[in-house]
Every structure is written in structure tokens, then in C-alpha cells.
Simulated scan of single mutants.
Amino acid sequence: MENTSKKMAVSVPITLGIRDGKGKSLATKASAYAHHRTIGGLMPGARFGIGDNTYVRRAGAKKIDFKLGRTEWLPPTDQRVVQLTASDVKADLYPVDKEQLYLLGDPTRMEVHRDQRYDLDITFKVHSRHPLPLNDGKANAILRDKHGKIVGGTHPSDTDTWARFAPGWSVHRIETGGVPPTVDASRIEVYPQPSYY
């Protein structure tokens, strides 16, 4: 998402949809949590990425659509909105091959399956101009392949627990599992935000 206005966008509500090639929704009730996000503050010309790992009815997602809700607009000089940026993004994409226990609806029904996937560990610096530490900060990462195509993203809860964005800069981590093996670690984008958004 990019703010093409000359004003700062504040508390931007977004509703997302995941659709197949015919426009049919692939979202499930279990994925409802991933349909709604709010972006705290977006300066003129700035971009912000949102991502997630979520459930779909079946394979074949071809389109992501989104709707913007009512947004508040402030002058870019307003100091009430904290602006954070990320740099020095480094990532480790590694294969996982292990036996995994799955519950089948209730604790008495369980199966063991071999889980073969790729997990991702991202470290990054957060730069903050805020004079105080920001407790329980979160971040989203956008994952791209070697051609620059978006192939996935991370949820804010994948950020290290109790992340504290200190004045100046601080180092943080995102850990997530089950990402496409085509992720190019050198093309990952990270978008931090304070937890109060």
C-alpha cells in the first residue's frame, strides 16, 4: 500500500479477500482473523506491506483484493504518529523435515504426519525517532522470489515476543514457518509498527 496524498494517513482500516481465478473467495471461517488489518500511520509517499500465513479452502489463489475503510488524514508534521523504518534485513530460509502430531477436531483423534516445509528466520534493525521505548512492537515482512514477485508474507505475531523498539535503533526478529521455497532472502521487505495500532 502506498500513500500518494500530501497528507499523512492515520488508522487506515483494510479488509482483504483471497480469490481464485474466477473470483470465488477461498477464505474460510478459520482465516477470518487475517481479513482485517489497520495501518497506524503512513507518511506521504511512504509504503506499508501487510502479510500473513492463513487457511484457504483449496489451492489456486490467483487474486488478493482489498478495500480501504474510513481513514483519518493529518498534516505530515503532526508528532502524534510514530514513524518507524527497518534496515539491515537478513534472512535464513531452511528446510524442515520432522514428524508432526495433528489433532483431528478433538483430543481423542490424532494423527502423525511427516511435515516437510521451509521455515524462515529474519533479523532486522528498527529505527525510531520516538523519545521513549515502544513496548510490544510488531512488524510485517513481504516475501518475494528472485523475480520480485510477491510469494508470501508474515503476520505481526511472528515478531519476537515483547519486542521493544528503543529510541534510535534496535535489532529484532521474525520467525515463521511453511513459506514457499522460492523466497529470495535478499528481497524481503520489513514494515515495523508500534503495537498500539
Results as ranks from 00 to 15, higher is better:
56 V>L: 12
185 A>V: 15
148 G>I: 00
59 A>R: 10
168 G>H: 05
59 A>F: 01
140 N>D: 15
186 S>Q: 11
188 I>A: 12
89 V>G: 07
137 G>P: 05
81 V>H: 03
74 L>P: 00
49 G>H: 01
135 N>L: 14
59 A>T: 08
59 A>I: 00
193 Q>R: 09
173 R>G: 02
97 D>L: 09
57 R>Q: 09
97 D>N: 15
99 E>M: 06
89 V>R: 08
160 D>I: 11
106 D>T: 12
182 T>M: 04
118 Y>C: 06
128 S>P: 13
65 D>T: 14
60 G>L: 09
98 K>P: 02
56 V>T: 14
93 L>M: 04
86 A>Y: 03
151 V>L: 11
167 P>G: 10
135 N>C: 03
52 D>P: 02
91 A>K: 01
112 V>I: 14
150 I>M: 01
50 I>M: 09
52 D>C: 03
194 P>W: 06
159 T>V: 02
172 H>I: 05
133 P>C: 11
83 Q>M: 12
121 D>A: 09
173 R>M: 03
78 D>N: 15
189 E>G: 02
107 P>V: 14
78 D>K: 00
165 F>H: 07
86 A>L: 00
156 P>I: 02
111 E>H: 04
120 L>G: 06
81 V>A: 10
131 P>V: 05
64 I>W: 08
152 G>Q: 02
183 V>C: 03
175 E>L: 13
95 P>R: 05
120 L>T: 02
192 P>C: 01
175 E>N: 00
141 A>C: 06
54 T>G: 08
167 P>T: 14
174 I>C: 07
103 L>Q: 13
145 D>H: 05
95 P>I: 08
159 T>Q: 00
82 V>R: 12
189 E>S: 11
115 D>S: 15
144 R>A: 10
147 H>V: 00
132 L>F: 11
152 G>P: 04
66 F>A: 11
137 G>M: 10
143 L>D: 01
62 K>R: 12
79 Q>I: 12
122 I>A: 10
178 G>L: 01
190 V>K: 05
50 I>Q: 07
134 L>S: 03
135 N>R: 09
99 E>Y: 00
68 L>T: 13
158 D>K: 07
